[in-house]
Design a protein around this nucleic acid. Structure first.
Lengths: 228, 228
DNA sequence: TCCGCTTAACCTTAATTAACCTAAATTGCT
DNA sequence: AGCAATTTAGGTTAATTAAGGTTAAGCGGA
C-alpha cells in the first residue's frame, strides 16, 4: 500500500505541529489544517485515508464538520479528539459520523495505534460486505440483487443506490438530506420528489408484512426498521 | 438474528453485575464470565456478536485471551477494558486483536456507545425490538409504535419524540422546559403552545380509563402517572 | 375566607409545509 | 425505433406549526 494520508484538523498551532511531525516521522503523509471551513475542500483535493478532527475549533463545531464529511465520504474513518469528558460528548461524536473518539490529552502513540486500527477495521469491513442481511431479505450490493425466500428482484441502479444507503442505516434514522446527497449529489427540490418515487419502489419490494419498514419522520427523514 | 449477544469477561463481581444489568436493560443478551479460562468455550457455545474483556484477570492475561479469540474468531469485535494507563498497554491491546480499548473507570453509557459503534462498523444489525412498558401499554421507540391490547398506533415523529421523553419519566415529574428543550431545542412561546397540542394527542392515545395519566402541574410541568 | 386578577395551560381551527402517489415526459441504451 | 429506467410534474393527503379564544389554577389583598 502507498503512504497513508491523514487529514489532521487542529487549531492549536503548537500541538498540531508536534503531532504532525511525529506522525510524519512514522511515515504518514499528514495534511494539517487549522480552519474547519477548509476541511471539505481539503478532503476533495488531498483524498485522505483517515481524518483526525479536533472538536473544539473556533468558529465551526467539529461535530458538524464530521457530519458533513460523513455525508460526502461515507467510508472515511474519522477520529474525534476532544477535551470534553462527558459521556454525551462521546455519544455525539459517534452520532456525528465518528468511528473512534479520543480524549485530550492523548499520547501520539495511542493516536497512531487507533489510526491503524481504524484502517484495519475498514479493510475488514470492505471485504465482508458482499452480502447484507436485511431482516428476512438478502441484498447483494455488487449484483444489485434483492431476495427473500419467495422472490428475487434485479434492482435498477438507482434503486440499488438508494438501498445501499438504507442498508448502512438498519434500525437507525437516515436524514433525507443524507439520502439525497449520497444518491443524487444534491438536495434540490426535484431530486427530492424523485426520492419519493424510489422510496415507494423500495416499500413495494419490502411489502407490508415482512418486518421491514421505512417509516417517515416528517421534516427529518426516515427510520429504517428491520425486525430480526 | 435476535438480540445482540455480548460476552463480558470481568472478575470483579460487583462491577460485573452492575454493568451486565445495565446492558441487559438496554436489550442486550449478556453472558458474564469471571474466569478467563472459560472464554473460548463460552464463545463456541454462546456465539457472541461482540466480546468485552477486562484485561486484569487473575491467572490468565486478558491480552492472551484476546489473541486466542482472534485466532478462532477473526471477525469478532473485541473491546478491552483496563485500569492500565500506559500507552504501551493500549498498543498491546490492539495488537492482541482488540478493535477498541477503554480505560477504567468507564461509564456504562460510553461502553454501550462503543459497542454499538463496533457493531455498526461491522455492519451487525442493531435490534429494533427494544420495548418500554407503560402500564398496560407497550411502546416500541425504534418503530414509533404504541400499542395496548386493543389498538396499535403508528406515531408521527413528533409524537414519538414527546413520548420518548415521557417514557424516561414514568411516575416522576417532568418540567415543561425539559420537554421543550429536548423536543424542540428551545422553549419559545410558540413551541410551548405546540407542546400543548402533543400533550393532547398523547392523552387521547392513553385515554381516561387505562391507568396512564399525564397530570398537569401548573407552572412546573407534568406528572406522568402510570399504574401497574 | 372570598373575590378578582393574572397567567399558564387547554382546545380548536387555520395555514403551512412536507411527503405521497400516479402518470406523463424524457433520457439513454441497444 | 423501441424499451426500460429515470426524471419531472402536479394533484392529494397528512403532519406540523401558528394563532387565538376559552378555561381554570394560583395568588394577593380586602
Amino acid at each position: 500500500m502507498a503512504t497513508i494520508k491523514i487529514l489532521y484538523v487542529e487549531d492549536e498551532a503548537n500541538l498540531g505541529t508536534i503531532v504532525s511531525e511525529t506522525l510524519e516521522q512514522k511515515g504518514f503523509d499528514v495534511r494539517l489544517i487549522a480552519d474547519g471551513n477548509l476541511v471539505l475542500q481539503a478532503c476533495l483535493t488531498f483524498k485522505p485515508d483517515i481524518a483526525v478532527l479536533d472538536v473544539m475549533l473556533p468558529g465551526v463545531d467539529g461535530f458538524t464538520i464530521g457530519k458533513n464529511l460523513r455525508l460526502q465520504f461515507p467510508d472515511l474513518p474519522i477520529i474525534f479528539l476532544t477535551a470534553k469528558t462527558q459521556t454525551k460528548d462521546v455519544v455525539e461524536g459517534f452520532q456525528s459520523g465518528g468511528t473512534d473518539y479520543m480524549r485530550k490529552p492523548f499520547s501520539v502513540e495511542e493516536l497512531i495505534i487507533r489510526i491503524q486500527n481504524q484502517l484495519r477495521l475498514r479493510n475488514v469491513q470492505q471485504v465482508a460486505s458482499e452480502i447484507i442481511r436485511i431482516g428476512k431479505f438478502i441484498y447483494h450490493p455488487k449484483k444489485l440483487l434483492l431476495e427473500n425466500g419467495e422472490h428475487r428482484w434485479q434492482l435498477s441502479s438507482r434503486e440499488a443506490e438508494v438501498l445501499d444507503v438504507f442498508s448502512r442505516y438498519i434500525n437507525r434514522t437516515i436524514d433525507r438530506k443524507t439520502l439525497l446527497l449520497e444518491v443524487w449529489g444534491d438536495d434540490s427540490f426535484f431530486h427530492s420528489r424523485n426520492l419519493d418515487v424510489y422510496i415507494r419502489k423500495l416499500r413495494d419490494y419490502f411489502g407490508s408484512t415482512n418486518g421491514v419498514q421505512i417509516i417517515t419522520l416528517k421534516g427529518k427523514g426516515y427510520q429504517f426498521v428491520v425486525e430480526n
